[in-house]
Computed example of a mutant assay.
Amino acid sequence: MLELYNDRLQDLFVSLTGEACSQPQSHGQAKRVEIKRNRKGVVFAQGAETKEASSAQELYALFQQACANRHISATKMNVESSRSHLIVGIMVESRNLTNGSVSTGKLSLVDLAGSERAAKTGAKDHQLKEANSINKSLSALGDVISALSSELPHVPYRNSKLTQVMQDSLGGNAKTLMIVNISPSECNSDETLT
């Protein structure tokens, strides 16, 4: 589990000393995580902690542990506003008990965080930097989706760490589902349209 915070990938399972987290980290300088692709084109985070789970309960416990280390902050619009993109990579392995063959697949769950207008959220200083970083990577994602849907010869995955991490979830034979949560309030219609 990673977060993309101010254009830096941070491992939510590893503390600043490199040991597995049991306490929320202080959000200082974290272990370096780099985006890589294997020979099959599967994106992975080199330097990130990998955990095993053999049940839904174990997976949920890991999810809760890592989420406790995510950057959140109060704004005028949300008392617990996420200040980053959350990236969960789940490698699923299935063994056929009859012939012993193993099938693997990757499920990527990404909380894109919301685009926000500083005037409405009251973001200043550090929060404004966080919002600008989120909005920049969301714009890059829009560019990638536009290039893919237009079948352009060049898809600008490298314009953002977010799109680099999501590359194998967007192009090729990947199946992508985006769930958009929008406000029903008329005062938020500008954000809804965006």
Rank of each mutant, 00 (worst) to 15 (best):
L2F: 01
L2Q: 02
Y5S: 01
Y5A: 00
N6G: 04
D7I: 05
L9H: 00
Q10R: 15
L12G: 01
L12T: 00
F13L: 14
V14C: 05
S15Q: 01
S15Y: 00
S15K: 01
L16D: 12
T17E: 13
E19V: 07
S22N: 12
Q23Y: 13
Q25C: 11
H27T: 02
H27M: 05
G28N: 00
Q29P: 09
Q29R: 11
A30K: 04
R32E: 13
K36W: 05
R37F: 08
R37V: 09
K40I: 07
V43L: 03
Q46F: 06
Q46R: 12
E49T: 15
A53S: 14
S54D: 12
S55P: 07
L62K: 04
Q64P: 03
Q64V: 08
Q64I: 07
A66E: 00
A66F: 01
R70S: 07
T75K: 09
K76C: 10
N78W: 03
S84Y: 00
H85Q: 13
H85I: 08
L86W: 05
L86Q: 08
I87S: 00
V88T: 10
G89K: 03
G89N: 13
I90R: 03
I90L: 09
I90H: 02
V92Y: 05
R95P: 06
N96P: 00
L97P: 11
N99V: 05
N99Q: 05
G100K: 04
G100V: 04
S101F: 09
S103W: 07
G105L: 12
G105Y: 09
K106G: 06
K106T: 12
K106I: 11
L107C: 15
V110F: 06
A113K: 01
G114P: 02
G114S: 06
S115C: 12
S115P: 05
E116V: 11
R117G: 01
K120T: 08
K120Q: 10
K120D: 06
K120S: 10
G122P: 04
A123Y: 00
A123I: 03
D125P: 01
L128T: 00
K129M: 11
E130K: 04
S133I: 02
S133A: 15
N135E: 02
S137M: 09
L141F: 04
S146G: 15
S146R: 15
S149V: 08
S149K: 14
E151W: 10
L152K: 15
P153W: 08
H154S: 10
H154G: 03
R158G: 12
R158H: 14
N159K: 14
S160F: 01
S160A: 11
S160L: 01
L162H: 02
T163V: 11
Q164L: 14
D168I: 06
S169T: 11
K175G: 08
K175I: 09
T176Q: 06
L177W: 07
S183W: 01
P184E: 00
E186H: 11
C187L: 14
C187Y: 08
D190S: 15
T192M: 08
L193V: 13
T194H: 13
